[in-house]
Amino acid sequence: MKLRIYEIADTEEIIKLFYDTVHEVNIHDYTEEQVAAWAPANMDIDFWIKGLASKFTYVAEEQGQIIGFGELELNGHIDRFYCHKDFQRKGVGKKILEQLESKAKTLGIEKLFTEASITAKPFFESQNFIIVKQQEVERRGQKFINFVMEKSFGNCKLLNSKQ
Rank of each mutant, 00 (worst) to 15 (best):
E62P: 05
L74P: 04
A60Y: 00
V148Q: 07
I66K: 00
V148Y: 03
D29G: 06
R140W: 03
Q134C: 12
E7S: 12
V22C: 04
F69K: 00
C83G: 07
L100R: 06
E115P: 03
K2I: 15
L159T: 01
D29E: 11
A39Q: 02
V59I: 15
A60R: 03
L17P: 00
E61G: 12
D44F: 01
V132C: 09
K105G: 10
N128T: 01
H28E: 11
Y82I: 01
R89M: 00
Q63H: 10
G70A: 08
Q142Y: 03
K50F: 03
E13D: 15
Q88Y: 03
N42T: 06
S102R: 11
I109M: 04
L100A: 10
L52H: 09
V25D: 02
K103T: 10
H28W: 09
G91Y: 01
L100T: 08
W38Y: 02
P40C: 06
E115W: 06
A39C: 06
F69D: 03
F124W: 04
L52S: 07
L52M: 14
F153V: 05
N160T: 05
M1E: 13
N146R: 00
G76D: 06
F123V: 03
E136D: 08
K121M: 11
A37R: 06
E24G: 14
F81K: 00
T114M: 12
Q34L: 12
E73K: 11
M43P: 08
E125K: 00
K16A: 15
L17V: 02
T21L: 01
S152D: 08
E24M: 13
G141D: 07
F69H: 02
E138V: 13
K55N: 10
Y19I: 09
V25K: 05
N75D: 14
P122K: 09
K50A: 15
Q65P: 09
T106G: 15
E12A: 15
I5T: 14
Y82T: 01
K105V: 09
K162E: 07
V25P: 11
D86G: 12
F69S: 00
T11I: 07
L107Y: 11
L52Y: 10
E33S: 14
N160L: 10
G91M: 00
L3Q: 05
Y30W: 05
F56R: 14
A36I: 03
E138R: 11
I5H: 10
N155T: 02
I118Y: 12
K94T: 05
A53G: 13
K94G: 03
T57K: 03
G76V: 04
S161Y: 06
Q88R: 10
F113W: 14
